[in-house]
């Protein structure tokens, strides 16, 4: 089966100013994103992540390179029919209600008239926006905007969902809700490509990650593989006394191993925050 997204030797140059100075945003990028996985595309601001996604979606033209989406040529209607997209900091017409926006996007995405109502309600339910769907978008909070953006991206049941910074500006509770939506897409067998600066969340959600810097790919692989340090081990010990520690160190040294640090396990601030404010909703 073909990859969800296949990019080969992609290069993008922007011309700047009257003299046409060349700025290389993406530099000879080759990347294969397998189907059915959650893929994190990471990198600092200006590293070429969003440009790459825009090229894949046909919003920006490539200077050089080959791209295919789900085995089809990119930037075609057929490829976009099978793709959903949530842009960074999404903005929608404020006078539309959430339900009207999702319906509008469903119609543009070619959802059949007979399936329209069910598709809209399913997408609103998946994004946990059913209750607020009758309100104008102008009254939505940042988190709700992201969630309604997610609903419009998945309303036509796409095989590939591209999310550009879906948690930017969203509080940890909203961010966790978006994480659950992404997980639900994975359960349905969809491919999700995620651009995010929330590395903790990416680590938890993604199956694979790629890291870009200055337009180039610097690392790509399964999360477990790229994060594991095979030359180090972590032991979690309960009720350790000084004597037990000394004995453990002696035993390790007898086998040529060396204890390099002893610390207390910590929970993340995000976990603590979510634990304390569980049940709160952004409305």
């Amino acid at each position: 089966m073909s990859a969800a997204i296949s990019v080969r030797h992609l290069t993008k140059d922007f011309r700047i100013g009257l003299r046409g100075l060349k700025l290389r945003a993406v530099d000879d990028l080759s990347l294969e994103i397998p189907r059915g996985q959650v893929f994190g595309l990471l990198g600092p601001n200006g590293c070429g992540k969003s440009t790459t996604l825009k090229i894949v979606l046909g919003l920006v033209s490539a200077t050089a390179g080959e791209i295919s989406i789900l085995g089809e040529s990119y930037a075609t209607s057929a490829a976009r029919r099978r793709t959903g997209f949530l842009p960074e900091a999404p903005y929608f017409h404020k006078f539309l209600t959430g339900r009207e926006l999702v319906r509008y996007c469903a119609q543009l995405s070619g959802v059949a008239a007979g399936d329209l109502d069910a598709a809209v309600e399913d997408a609103l339910g998946l994004a946990a926006m059913s209750e607020a769907a009758a309100r104008p978008i102008g009254t939505y909070s940042k988190g709700m905007l992201q969630r309604i953006g997610f609903a419009q991206a998945v309303v036509h049941d796409p095989e590939l969902v591209i999310l550009d910074e879906p948690t930017a500006g969203v509080d940890p509770v909203g961010s966790a809700a978006i994480g659950r939506m992404i997980d639900a897409m994975r359960t349905k067998g969809k491919t999700v490509v995620l651009c995010s600066h929330l590395l903790g969340q990416v680590e938890q959600i993604c199956d694979r990650v790629a890291i870009m810097d200055r337009g180039k790919l610097v690392l790509e692989g399964a999360v477990e593989d790229v994060l594991a340090r095979r030359d180090r081990h972590v032991l979690t010990v309960e009720a350790m006394t000084p004597a037990a520690r000394a004995a453990a160190e002696a035993a390790l040294e007898a086998h040529g191993a060396k204890l390099t640090s002893v610390t207390h396990p910590r929970r993340s601030l995000e976990d603590l925050f979510r634990e304390l404010v569980t049940g709160s909703r952004d409305a």
Binding site: L57, P87, Y91, L108
Partner: peptide
């Protein structure tokens, strides 16, 4: 400018 065109043109809309 509001980037609503990004959302719309990423759909099967020419």
């Amino acid at each position: 400018d509001n980037k609503t065109a990004l959302t719309l043109l990423a759909k099967p809309l020419s």
